[in-house]
Design a protein around this nucleic acid. Structure first.
Lengths: 139, 139
DNA sequence: ATAGGGCTTCCAGTGACTGGAAGCTCAATA
DNA sequence: TATTGAGCTTCCAGTCACTGGAAGCCCTAT
């Protein structure tokens, strides 16, 4: 299999596949003409990587997971530990984004968004303590 | 003010402040000894940047927001547009993470996590179609 | 013979910093 | 006065996971 077919069948761009070879995640053979010659197992690995990446695992996690996948004597606890750690990281990211979202949506709602220059979004960024009550001049 | 004091008062690391100068977000003066000499306005800008970054705005968004902040004739609609676009991007990221989270937490729950090698997490990554019913050997 | 598409390598850029090295300045102490 | 040591300077390199582009080889079809 040439890289184009593997790309199509794995869903990964050729560039990414070459990159994965660069960093040692796959080791395809070479044909006489210098083209990469992928076996089914290579395709399988790449598809594995594609799914792991789609779940947000880092490349290093992917390397670990692939190693565990190939290790017949692995303990499922090892896999679970990697996944749980990643899950925690995802939860942290979600929490951070939701806290940003909360503040931001509040600010967006409080901005009239017309041709006038005064804007509670900028006031908040500028002052940190400027709130909509201030922009509506309750002082 | 030297960079150390500005760092402390703005909450940004000195490295970051130098970087912000590099890319033209702030333009502190220089003392005779070559040290950066920050004015209150520079500190103000840096604090603005810190808050905007904490809300997840990109550096380019920050540049735009700072420009709008300094532009007396801005229209609040411009600010609101930037913020709304960013809010949409945040929502997209949250949605993506939550979909990862859902799949991943399902997989984690289905993995017994002991010393045995068989693991639905790896099965899923390997096959895409392998499900927990398969790991419990209903075939 | 030529055109095209696919393949190769290598280099550079992305975003937003961060770490580290080498060296200058300044204030306080011995 | 000499010497610490902290703080400041610049510059270079690395992070993460690709992605784009250039230059050039290979293969097939016309």
């Amino acid at each position: 299999m040439n890289i184009g077919e593997v790309a199509e069948r794995s869903g990964l761009p050729p560039k990414t596949i070459r990159y994965y070879e660069d960093i040692g995640l796959v080791r395809p053979l070479r044909s006489g003409n210098g083209y990469r010659a992928f076996r089914e197992t290579d395709l399988h690995k790449l598809a594995f990587l594609g799914r792991a990446r789609a779940l947000g695992f880092s490349i290093e996690d992917c390397r670990t997971l692939l190693d565990l996948y190939e290790d017949e004597s692995r303990e499922s606890a090892q896999v679970k530990a990697v996944a749980e750690e990643h899950l925690t990281a995802i939860d942290d990211k979600i929490a951070l984004l939701q806290s940003m979202r909360k503040t931001l949506s509040h600010l967006v709602k409080s901005c009239h968004g017309d041709e006038r220059p005064d804007c509670p979004i900028l006031s908040d960024l500028a002052g940190g303590m400027a709130r909509s009550w201030k922009t509506t001049n309750h002082s």
